[in-house]
Nucleic acid binder design. Structure first.
Length: 168
DNA sequence: CCCTGATTCGC
DNA sequence: GCGAATCAGG
């Protein structure tokens, strides 16, 4: 499909009406993609419909045309180790705001790795298993139970109670 | 992950 | 001129 008069006119109209590029592409049909629409819009010089661009911050030119696909595979996003702030487990995070819920850090000050975990220590997981900052609570626990008092209270919270709290 | 427009550049 | 690929955001 090529850009005939009518199609361009329709494009202009729809663009002026505020339709998105993908919507216009669907309207035009003929296998036109939203990229094609956007490209045409730019070439027609009618971009910047709603808000001014003003984003400034010129994107660094991408090292396009990767001769080798795998060349794009490695790109360092950041140093994970530097950002290794022990995050509370999603489980704990989802816990309702119990009135007695102390700051997790205060309770789980031990924070032991699985290597240092002993029989008498709380096995409450802290963080994301698979991350190297994954720890267990490690606070003293009754040898008969896997958790310390605090985490036992969490683990064995009555379902009715939990449901009621979560509903709120 | 869905979407948006913006940009680059091989064709 | 065209538009896929890719970008930066929402």
């Amino acid at each position: 499909m090529n850009w005939t008069e009518e199609r361009v006119e329709l494009l202009k109209k729809l663009w002026a009406d505020g339709l998105s590029a993908s919507q216009i592409a669907a309207e035009l049909g003929g296998g036109v993609t939203r990229n094609a629409v956007i490209g045409k819009v730019h070439r027609l010089g009618l971009s910047g419909r709603v808000k001014a661009v003003a984003s400034a911050a010129p994107r660094p030119r991408k090292p396009r045309a990767p001769s080798h696909p795998s060349a794009t595979l490695y790109r360092v996003q950041g140093n994970a180790a530097l950002a290794a702030v022990p995050a509370p487990s999603a489980e704990v995070d989802r816990m309702p705001e119990v009135a007695v819920r102390p700051r997790l850090e205060a309770v789980s000050c031990e924070r032991v790795t699985i290597m240092d975990l002993r029989e008498c220590m709380c096995r409450w997981p802290i963080g994301d298993p698979g991350r190297d900052d994954f720890r267990f609570c490690g606070t003293r626990a009754d040898p008969a139970t896997p958790y310390c008092n605090y985490h036992s209270a969490m683990a064995y919270q009555p379902t009715t109670d939990r449901r009621r709290r979560n509903a709120a």
